[in-house]
């Protein structure tokens, strides 16, 4: 993993050193053109988190992050399967995107000011609202994070989680010893081996890790406290506004589809709908797709290929025991509020 990070950084260095200055690159969406000519979207995902991006028994990457990539591929190329997934670690993900190795990154990455300000990258939206949680062994009898004073905590370096824990423990005058390992499988094994009292990452990641334990899931408890806001989303490079728009509105279209009752099952009937909101969404009225630089039926392709946001949720993260909670639509007590598609 380390080699990939270093290589990525060197490639970034080399790429920046040898490529002509950005000003000479012209305007418009170079990224969309590249994806079209390549016939494939290159999307960075995790090295394997159930519910987000994990290869199934047939080797197909499944999860909400993977499906977000598929939706963008469907919007641009009309086919949700024209995606090449690139597994990235927490430390090489940004360099991979900066260096142009990836078109976009959907790797349960938290939207923060520091990242948007320093990395030359933009968050195009939030596909999952999350927060830092703690998993402990049931046998330890821990009921709250406050009981973890003096504990050893397993956490991946280079994440916003490690910063959140450091802040929280300091604020509550608690002490902890971190064990920091980059590789996801390795840090999880280290926790299971008993090197750490607790394993901390986004609560959704903990739920999926617990789920993966199968019959042994009962041996682990998720502590009630969620100590930070972790809005996870899609990232693109700065400087290609058209591509940014497209990624952003692809997710909004999926959320709007759920809100308007459009799904992969009824999409053919919806094409005949007289409701102007739905007509604009499916492209039977207006030319909003063209404004984005793609086919006018882009949203139809997205919904056919991946479904609406609710369908995607039910297929990917719901089976892991994640309640919809704040990830519901705005009119159902959640945070997903798509701006009008008009």
């Amino acid at each position: 993993m380390k080699r990939i990070t270093l290589l990525g950084a060197l490639l970034l260095g080399a790429g920046l050193a040898f490529s002509p200055p950005a000003a000479a690159q012209g305007s418009g969406s170079a990224t969309i053109d590249t994806i079209k000519s390549r016939g494939q979207l290159v999307c960075g995902v995790s090295t394997g988190v159930a519910g987000f991006s994990l290869a199934d028994s047939k080797g197909v990457t499944q999860g909400i992050d993977a499906d977000t990539c598929r939706a963008v591929a469907a919007a641009i190329l009309g086919d949700a399967n024209k995606v090449r997934f690139v597994p990235t670690t927490t430390t090489n993900r940004f360099t991979a995107l900066q260096s142009g190795e990836l078109d976009m990154l959907v790797r349960s990455t938290t939207w923060t000011l520091g990242r948007e300000g320093n990395l030359g990258l933009l968050f195009a939206g939030v596909n999952f609202y999350d927060g830092t949680g703690f998993l402990v062994k049931s046998a330890a009898g821990v009921k709250s994070v406050k009981d973890l004073d003096g504990a050893t905590i397993c956490v991946q370096p280079g994440t916003s989680t490690e910063l959140a824990i450091a802040d929280y423990f300091r604020l509550n005058k608690l002490k902890f010893t971190p064990v920091l390992i980059q590789d996801l499988a390795e840090i999880q094994n280290t926790y299971l081996a008993g090197r750490c009292d607790s394993y901390s990452t986004d609560a959704s990641g903990l739920a999926s890790f617990r789920f993966q334990q199968g019959p042994k899931a009962e041996e682990h408890v998720l502590l009630p406290e969620i100590i930070s806001k972790e809005p996870l989303g899609m990232m693109v490079r700065k400087g290609d506004d058209k591509f940014f728009d497209l990624v952003r509105w692809t997710l909004f279209a999926m959320i709007q589809a759920e809100e308007s009752g459009v799904s992969s099952k009824n999409i053919d009937e919806m094409l005949k709908s007289t409701n102007p909101d739905i007509r604009r969404l499916v492209g039977t009225e207006g030319d909003l797709g063209k404004a984005l630089g793609v086919d006018n039926r882009w949203a139809v392709n997205v919904i056919r290929g991946v479904g609406n946001y609710g369908e995607m949720w039910d297929r990917t993260v719901a089976p892991l025991g994640n309640p919809r909670g704040i990830n519901n639509l705005w009119n159902k007590g959640g945070l997903h509020y798509p701006p009008p598609i008009r």
Partner: peptide
């Protein structure tokens, strides 16, 4: 290497970190 790579990841300054 471990700390520098965490640093470059948190600050986004890969070239300086390397």
């Amino acid at each position: 290497v471990s700390i520098a790579s965490t640093t470059l990841n948190q600050t986004g300054q890969a070239i300086e970190g390397i």
